[in-house]
Computed example of a mutant assay.
Amino acid sequence: MSKFHFKIDPASNQLKFQQLIDSVTEAISKNLLQAGDILPSVNQLCKESSLSRDTVFKAYAELKNRGIIESVPNKGYFVSKATTKVFLFLDTFKAYKEVLYGSFLENLPDNIAVDLHFHHYNINVFETIIKESLGKYTKYIVMNFDHKRVPEIVKQIPNNKLLVIDWEVHAKPENSSVFQDFGQSLYDCLQAHLQPIKKYERFIYMYPEFTYHPQESITHFNAFCKDNKISSEVLKNSREFNIQPGDLYLMVSDRMLARFLDQCDQKKLVPGKDVGVISYNETPMKKYVKEGITVISTDFELMGRKAAEFVSGGESVNFCVPTKLTLRSSL
């Protein structure tokens, strides 16, 4: 007797054969179906769910094509393996994203495979890859970005299958999300370490023209400096970057952090003494560079762990991953 029972959702915009495919893959991911379990026969599904034979055959053929089920003559259709696929869509692959990705994989059950894609903030790439992925995965983990067309593209993914991570921009209230705060958390981190910041003459936010870091961070940086009467500047032209003794720099780009360190060597300036630097986003190497780079960062390991919980547990989630400043010698 089959463990699997299927009912058409008349309110769904999905085609019936796609609903059947999704129901089978969802049942496998939740261990309601396991390798070797028999599926309902074509005749049984037609009778119980009012599906046409063509619809059932089409769905089963696609599941066979993906290697999820197999057919045995005179016996029927069986789950061939318990592996299901997750769609992971990141912006770019930087060192801190590797931490997130590693944590995500480490906390997933062995029966779940991950297809990793990148959009590089290109809306055409974003749209194409999303469209090509629809209906092929049990869960979708997507890093949104600030573009007006993102909401209309992402809404094609069923809400119960979608998790927005890292940046909550364009996420709807009904979407699951595991994200970081780029505004108030920055202000709070700086305020908690006001004393070492105030030993510098100026505080400069290096926000280069090529960054996609959320602009709300500029608002909160300016508010922090104004509230604490700190001389400050937001520098957006990377060609004008020229470090001076007595200045403290907030870096959202590791490319600009490397230029900062190069200029320190060229000008014989010691980070944490002659000039200061705070870098956004922890990476494994920053605690070793120049006796330690001070960082403001969310916990990317925790973000990966929470994303894995969404995939394996299936429950909706809305979780803001804490951000903290880790004080090292560069400040």
Score class of each variant (00 low, 15 high):
Cys320Asn: 12
Arg259Cys: 03
Asn124Ala: 12
Ser177Asn: 07
Arg66Asn: 00
Leu39Ala: 04
Glu106Ser: 05
Phe260Tyr: 10
Ser52Ala: 07
Gln14Asp: 09
Thr298Leu: 12
Gln195Asn: 14
Val150Tyr: 14
Ala82Tyr: 00
Asp110Gln: 04
Lys287Cys: 02
Pro245Leu: 06
Glu70Phe: 04
Val72Tyr: 09
Leu331His: 10
Val270Asp: 08
Leu331Trp: 10
Lys7Gly: 02
Ile165Phe: 14
Tyr137Lys: 01
Gly67Asp: 05
Asn74Val: 01
Cys264Asp: 11
Lys139Ile: 03
Leu325Gln: 08
Ala258Leu: 07
Val169Thr: 14
Thr326Trp: 13
Arg239Gln: 11
Pro214Asn: 06
Leu194Trp: 11
Asn318Ala: 06
Gly276Gln: 02
Lys226Ala: 14
Ile28Cys: 13
Phe145Tyr: 13
Leu331Phe: 06
Val321Tyr: 06
Thr138Arg: 10
Asp265Pro: 02
Tyr212His: 15
Gly246Glu: 01
Ser217His: 14
Ile293Arg: 09
Lys136Gln: 05
Leu163Gly: 02
Lys64Pro: 00
Glu315Asn: 13
Lys97Glu: 14
Asn124Arg: 05
Lys139Phe: 02
Ser71Ile: 03
Leu45Pro: 07
Ile129Asp: 01
Lys267Asn: 12
Tyr96Asn: 02
Ser52Met: 07
Asp9Arg: 07
Ser232Cys: 15
Phe310Gln: 08
Ser52Tyr: 00
Asn175Leu: 07
Ser279Glu: 11
Glu106Val: 00
Trp167Lys: 13
Phe210Ile: 10
Gly67Trp: 03
Lys3Pro: 05
Met251Tyr: 15
Ala35Gln: 10
Asn43Trp: 04
Lys172Ala: 11
Ser185Val: 15
Leu163Pro: 01
Ala258Phe: 02
Arg259Tyr: 15
Ile243His: 01
Gln18Gly: 01
Val56Thr: 10
Asp254Asn: 04
Lys131Met: 01
Lys286Tyr: 15
Lys198Glu: 12
Asp262Thr: 15
Lys81Thr: 03
Glu174Phe: 11
Phe145Met: 02
Phe210Ala: 12
Asn237Leu: 04
Pro322Val: 15
Ile293His: 06
Lys7Arg: 07
Phe89Ser: 04
Pro173His: 08
Tyr280Ser: 13
Asp37Cys: 09
Val311Thr: 03
Glu62Lys: 09
His213Ser: 14
Leu134Trp: 09
Ala258Gly: 06
Ser297Asp: 08
Tyr249Phe: 10
Phe17Glu: 09
Asn65Gln: 09
Arg239His: 09
Thr298Asp: 13
Val295Gln: 01
Ser12Arg: 02
Asp115His: 08
Ser217Glu: 05
Val114Leu: 07
Glu233Asn: 12
Ile123Leu: 11
Asn111Arg: 00
Asp91Tyr: 04
Phe203His: 08
Ile68Val: 11
Ile112Phe: 07
Lys155His: 04
Gly292Pro: 05
Asn43Arg: 11
Phe17Arg: 14
Lys81Ser: 08
Ser185Gly: 08
Ser29Pro: 05
Phe210Gln: 10
Ile197Phe: 14
Ser279Val: 14
Arg149Val: 04
Met256Phe: 08
